[in-house]
Design a protein around this nucleic acid. Structure first.
Lengths: 193, 193
DNA sequence: GCAAAACTTGCAGAGTGTGCAAAAGGTGCG
DNA sequence: CGCACCTTTTGCACACTCTGCAAGTTTTGC
């Protein structure tokens, strides 16, 4: 059975996807210029005002659902044992996140072309929270074993983020396995570039 | 002597700084909300239209002049000997960029508080070109000696960027020397996190 | 001092995003 | 069914960013 709340959530998610699809289609067919909120709403058969009930920024409709939400990342990190060395914890979290790519891989391919043409889209969407997230994660990593200072904490976080993103990107381009590429990247970081 | 072109450039730079100062002052005194283009222009005694002759995006007036321009980065890299190992080249470029912080250090402190309160500002400004720049640099690094593949290239670039930014940030917060912190960060990367 | 070049400004307009209140739709229950 | 309750959609007004264009002002070169 499905509770009413679940039904609402599911419908909402479906509609969100439908709007996304309409948006991406327009951007690919007619150029990013043509993908105005008005045009997207018309194609998705909703009012422009409703568009903003689903996406808080236009560009959000033009990129993949993110692999992680900021709150979540710190949560995953906090769930690791307190005495685990920082790098081990970060690696574990990176593996969890990389594993999520699988289910939405088709998605990833759908958005690939658009992202190739307009790499600034993703950056714009995440600009808002990414930097704040980094700061939070730095703070969380600092107090873990195996961290020699704030500079070390920063590099660990940037490195692990970077490894995850690179692995996913690389997999998308060359068709390799995300998991294997991630391990390769993490090993490079661990042993020195 | 000063050629007319030089004079114009200098005046332009001065005015740009003046507008910036006005903008940051408003944002710090009355909140980011209050820092509209209209308010900034009024404070800087120019028309709103003129504001956009100096900055192509509002946020540009609220953050430090960037340490590097995208084109420049690839240029610096290309200027390194062809047979130099990639990591050495990147380190050299990082050192050049970090050295630039000195002259604008007062600046950096001025913008520090605002950046602490609104970390999304910097990201928003750079969202446009940063991703494209990365791709270019990846490509340039790939063909250098000592790079085992695209994944390695990506990590080298992200790592060196990250080290530079981290060193600057860390120096701003704890008052250390940018050069020393950069060396520390690069050593960590080289020997493994 | 005058013509060319560079810079500033006003204006009109397209586009994003928000608050609010009214309308529409779905749900539960007697 | 029919009526109350909650959620979602929508229209409207509005603030704000950013652009193109043309007219006005200043700077520069001779």
């Amino acid at each position: 059975m499905e509770t009413p709340q679940e039904r609402r959530d599911r419908r909402r998610a479906e509609k969100r996807q439908a709007i996304r699809t309409a948006a991406v289609k327009i951007a690919l067919d007619q150029g990013l210029e043509a993908a105005t909120v008005e045009a997207i709403s018309a194609a998705a058969d909703i009012s422009p005002r409703t568009f903003f009930n689903y996406f808080s920024v236009k560009e959000e409709a033009l990129v993949m659902e993110p692999l992680w939400r900021p709150e979540e990342f710190t949560g995953l990190l906090a769930a690791r044992p307190d005495d685990e060395p920082a790098f081990e914890s970060l690696k574990a979290v990176a593996r969890i996140l990389a594993a999520r790519v699988g289910p939405i891989w088709a998605d990833a391919r759908l958005f690939g072309e658009l992202r190739r043409r307009h790499p600034e889209l993703a950056a714009k969407v995440r600009a808002a929270d990414e930097t704040k997230l980094m700061e939070d994660v730095f703070a969380a990593v600092r107090d873990r074993p195996g961290v020699s200072g704030k500079l070390h904490a920063r590099l660990l976080v940037i490195g692990t983020f970077g490894a995850t993103i690179s692995a996913v990107q690389e997999a998308a381009e060359s068709g390799g396995s995300v998991e294997e590429l991630l391990e390769e990247a993490l090993t490079l970081l661990e042993n020195g570039l």
